[in-house]
Write a protein that binds this DNA or RNA. Structure first.
Lengths: 356, 356
DNA sequence: CTATCATATGTAAGCGCTTACATGCATCCT
DNA sequence: AGGATGCATGTAAGCGCTTACATATGATAG
């Protein structure tokens, strides 16, 4: 006993189907489908008539039905720790713009760095047949990435490394930290403190590496008491700076591994009545909005956030077309942004370090 | 000639289907479906066995197939002008958290205030059978909202009004501006400049209204030359402030209708070597991150951004269950955040305005 | 003049799932 | 005993779409 087709019942609120178009035009659904998709043979006038009727009915293809047969969702998952973290909106924007250009949509997934939430979202994305996933989270569980890839869902890692072969786009953190440190060295600073991100995270390691490399290039050994571990939050920048300036031989410059911590450092110095950049120079990392609002304005390393998102997204979509191609790593160049928080070291009568 | 079922061909990379579970357990797909969904009768041990097998196969229901028959996508569209605008990440986060709690996912739609992009996204959302849509855009075309509602897709407006019956959640902009202005009045300021948002937008109108109301409560007429139209961007705050201080009888306080413009005003005053709050007090609106980073820290009106998103989302989901219920408007209370950019007016020998 | 081919359209299967309906069995009531 | 009821399971239709295949027609080639 056949149930009646929905098309037969007038459901004025719902969206029209190709059945309705077909019956109105007097052709089969196959022809309508061909006319709408542009594939296959359809007489020119017929196609135009169909298009016109579809438009008149305000037709929109049901993407569930379409996805079910084509096995493509045109959905991309974007996994971020927290969109409220000022670093990510620009990345997300880059992803979205690139996705839209190619007819994809973005499902936003905030994980708060929680593995549980990440796992849940992986299930959601598999269930929704996401065509691909972009990870920007700091601690990717490689298990989840593997699960996705095993399910046939390609993955791109943005600003992240892993013990796993896959596509990666990243801003060169070693290079960025190197630039920041060399800039300070060039201004005559020799004792440069660093407030790092969490040691467990690859980006943190890279930035420390860049810092070390710049120092050693000038034959300066990096002293452990000048290195403070932070957690990328303002408070830890404040604390780190406080510790550094209380050292018996305090640094004349501080490199904070992100802007939020740099702002914290600025506050600590302000409270301690140290002038920035008069007494202590400060350099940040990321170039988020607050960097140009803080007083003094932060000299910082700009990351191409938007581009990172856009490129990650394009890599992902390219990968969909060429699943077999070798994995790529795209390294973007961070850029030093000169503002007022870093300046030439004061020479108090004694010898200045030679500039770079 | 029947095509072979996919289930028959081993496709190790793809996700298992209920057919595979059914055949492994030796029951029909209907029973599997019932076991997984929890509806209908299934013997207890059988259900457990099915659940176990599903787990072992790492099964995830195909949401396309499911959506096709249930006519529910569990997708909510979130339309924002630009997620990079610091106001929106928190709203988005609120939406997402509330959505997740109830098993919904969020499709992020940046429109840049462009009607074309908005139209495109409306089509996408209809095509994807979105269960509901949240608008946070400043200029909603009521046509699009109507289109959605006609397609049976409920809509909630966040921080927005319209010439249309629908659910609305909003922070009371009249009240917020009133509080800001009254605070300045209370500090002894009588000449208070205002830098508004674009006049075409309802929120701007409301904030002007609040400003006027606070002034008239003390019998002060609002003078047109103290009102400058801005566009919610930093630059226009700078320009507006510059114009205001060049007045023959310049204001002793400036109320900028958002923090970005307030920061712009701060820069203008700094450049003009006017002390804030010594010479001029400044109050902003929104309480975005920069408000607490700017020097002096901005006294501002905090909007419950996260709550606005979360409540909008909950209203939307409630509406899905009760399509017939009368429309609601939820008004949230903005809150004055006291920082350092506004202070008691200097009394230069002459008469002070009486505090409030 | 028939074989070949490009064009144009229809038929119907099937994507993976839910669910109305049918069926079967045990239990319980009158 | 016969019917009603609750539980457990199976059968198969159908959600709206794409697409392989069948079919038909006119044009072109040999």
């Amino acid at each position: 006993m056949r149930r009646q087709r929905r098309g037969a019942i007038a459901r004025c609120t719902a969206i029209a189907t190709i059945y309705e178009i077909a019956s109105k035009v007097g052709v089969s659904t196959a022809t309508v489908s061909r006319a709408l998709s542009g594939g296959g043979y359809v007489r020119k006038e017929l196609r135009e008539q169909i298009l016109q009727v579809a438009k008149a009915m305000d037709y929109q293809p049901n993407s569930f039905a379409r996805g079910l047969v084509t096995r493509q969702s045109h959905i991309l998952g974007l996994i971020v720790p927290d969109i409220c973290n000022p670093f990510f909106p620009a990345v997300a924007r880059g992803v979205e713009d690139a996705a839209n250009e190619r007819g994809y949509n973005v499902l936003l997934c905030n994980t708060d760095g929680s593995l549980r939430k990440e796992n849940d979202y992986i299930d959601v994305l598999r269930s929704r047949q996401a065509d691909g996933v972009i990870f920007t989270t700091s601690q990717v569980s490689s298990r989840n990435v593997k699960t996705l890839m095993k399910s046939g869902i390609p993955v791109v890692l943005a600003d992240r490394r892993m013990d796993l072969e896959c596509d990666i786009v990243s801003a060169d953190n070693v290079e960025g930290a190197f630039q920041a440190t060399r800039h300070l060295l060039g201004l005559g600073h020799a004792r440069i403190g660093i407030i790092t991100g969490p040691m467990g995270v690859a980006t943190s390691q890279d930035r420390i590496e860049g810092y070390r490399r710049a120092l050693s290039e000038l034959g300066i050994a990096s002293s452990p008491d000048l290195i403070r571990e932070g957690d990328y939050r303002e408070r830890s920048g404040y604390d780190g700076a406080m510790e550094l300036i209380k050292l018996s031989d305090p640094p004349t410059a501080i490199f904070a591994c992100n802007d939020l911590m740099a702002v914290g450092a600025l506050h600590a110095l302000e409270e301690s009545e140290l002038q920035v950049p008069g007494d202590v120079s400060v350099v940040g990392y990321d170039d988020i909005t607050v960097a140009s609002v803080a007083r003094p304005r932060l000299t910082t390393i700009a990351q191409p956030k938007y581009e990172m998102g856009a490129i990650a997204c394009r890599m992902l979509i390219d990968r969909l077309r060429a699943p077999g191609d070798p994995y790529q790593t795209v390294m973007l160049r961070p850029q030093l942004v000169l503002r007022e928080s870093a300046a030439m070291m004061k020479c108090e009568g004694s010898v200045c370090n030679p500039g770079l």
